[in-house]
């Protein structure tokens, strides 16, 4: 079922445009300059930008404020990421209403990484809802204009709802069945964790085709070799082909940082081109935290 699109992002997807989205990470700061600057860099190249919510359980600035600010200051639509890790259902309702009041158009409903993998591992994990029950609550709020206990909401919010998927999950079937639950509840789009080859994207898109839901394929270029090593070691489901690893390591050795950037543009530009040509992806979600400027270069290299 295709629902009415409440965001520019969903309108473009529904119109069949191949879309690009970006991602920005408000960090442990009270400054908004960097996020707004990042949004300005991405603005002309993406239709919307995700603002992360305490990613990998690091205690950062609340994602709602930068989501609002990039819309107001940079004029680019936000995808407000919300995890169920740090707030119970009361806290989630509050923030969803606040997001509606501030004109947020997209919510990415996430469970969130466990507290123990973050920078404050002693914290009590909440997980009152999970991403599925959160989607259920969002739909109730939007479609019926009530909260989980059927209390009326004055002027209910309207969002397009996205969820995350792990394209390299092993085993994959429970992952797909989990996504199916949320598709049945009513979501608008799926955004995947990063893939490192068109083949990984293709395999997942084929396996997930029964979901009949637009899927944005996630890509995350490597800012540095140490970041690549960290991702391979700590991020579940990351499968970096040996070939890519070697090209980047060689680039670093020969030409340093600049050569790594250039190799990234080459590798990911080619990958995007391939994904665009050979798969049914609805678009690409780019995650280039701290070097957003590389996104336009990759898109340009892909000829898209």
């Amino acid at each position: 079922m295709r629902r009415e699109a409440h965001s520019k992002l969903m309108k473009q997807i529904n119109e069949g445009n191949f879309v690009f989205t970006g991602e920005l990470e408000p960090v442990k700061t009270t400054k908004l300059d960097e996020v707004i600057e990042g949004a300005r860099i991405l603005k002309d190249h993406v239709v919307a930008i995700n603002i992360t919510d305490n990613p990998t359980a690091f205690g950062y600035m609340n994602a709602l404020v930068p989501s609002y600010m990039i819309q107001r200051e940079a004029g680019v639509e936000a995808v407000y990421q919300m995890t169920t890790r740090d707030r119970n259902r009361l806290g989630l309702i509050s923030d969803v209403l606040a997001a509606g009041a501030l004109g947020i158009k997209n919510i990415l409903a996430l469970t969130g990484d466990h507290t123990t993998v973050g920078d404050t591992p002693q914290a009590k994990p909440v997980f009152d809802l999970d991403s599925a029950t959160f989607v259920y609550m969002l739909r109730k709020m939007m479609d019926e204009g009530v909260d989980l206990n059927n209390n009326q909401i004055e002027d209910p919010p309207k969002f397009s709802i996205g969820i995350a998927a792990a394209p390299n999950a092993d085993p994959l079937e429970p992952e797909l069945l989990k996504i199916k639950r949320k598709v049945d509840l009513g979501i608008d789009f799926i955004q995947t964790q990063c893939v490192y080859s068109a083949e990984q994207a293709q395999n997942f898109l084929e396996a997930a085709s029964f979901l009949k839901t637009p899927i944005l394929i996630g890509i995350a270029p490597f800012k540095s070799i140490s970041m690549m090593d960290w991702m391979i070691k700590f991020v579940p489901g990351i499968k970096v082909p040996k070939e890519i690893e070697e090209i980047l390591r060689k680039a670093k050795k020969i030409g340093g940082k600049q050569a790594v950037y250039e190799a990234n543009v080459e590798i990911f530009g080619e990958m995007l081109k391939e994904i665009r040509k050979t798969t049914t992806a609805a678009g690409i979600h780019t995650m280039a935290i701290g070097f957003e400027w590389i996104v336009p270069k990759i898109i340009e290299r892909a000829g898209l």
Binding site: T111, V117, D130, A169, K178
Partner: peptide
Amino acid sequence: CAKSLLNGPCGGQASGKCEVG
């Protein structure tokens, strides 16, 4: 489940093992 999920699994599993611990 470390997150007490009612609708799992989450993205924190690989080859059937949990990222927590």
